[in-house]
């Protein structure tokens, strides 16, 4: 058991810095296993280098975010689709 694992909810603030919408309810389709889930259902790991959002089913890295010196780096390779609801 990895005790540093957190829920997708915990990335809500960071994702809210980048996206204009509430992102914990956004739906992601995992590029590795095809599972659809809300970001709130995914697993989040914080590291010194940044934050990784992983698929709760297969552990694939869905979203990686680094934020060095005033610039956000987003690696979304692990996501096939990202569906964001208005309002």
């Amino acid at each position: 058991m990895d005790e540093n694992r957190l829920d997708g909810n915990s990335a809500g603030g960071l994702l809210g810095e980048i996206f204009a919408f509430e992102m914990t309810t956004a739906q992601v389709t995992c590029a590795s296993c095809g599972t659809h889930s809300r970001i709130g259902q995914a697993m989040v790991y914080g590291h010194g280098m940044g934050t990784i959002v992983r698929c709760a089913r297969c552990d694939n890295a869905l979203i990686r975010i680094a934020h060095p010196s005033g610039r956000y780096w987003l690696d979304l390779r692990g996501v096939r689709y990202l569906q964001v609801e208005e309002a």
């Binding site: 909810n9 603030g13 809210g16 509430e22 914990t24 309810t25 709130g40």
Partner: peptide
């Protein structure tokens, strides 16, 4: 502080 955050839980 900033928020509220989260729509899932």
């Amino acid at each position: 502080l900033r928020g509220p955050i989260g729509g899932w839980f």
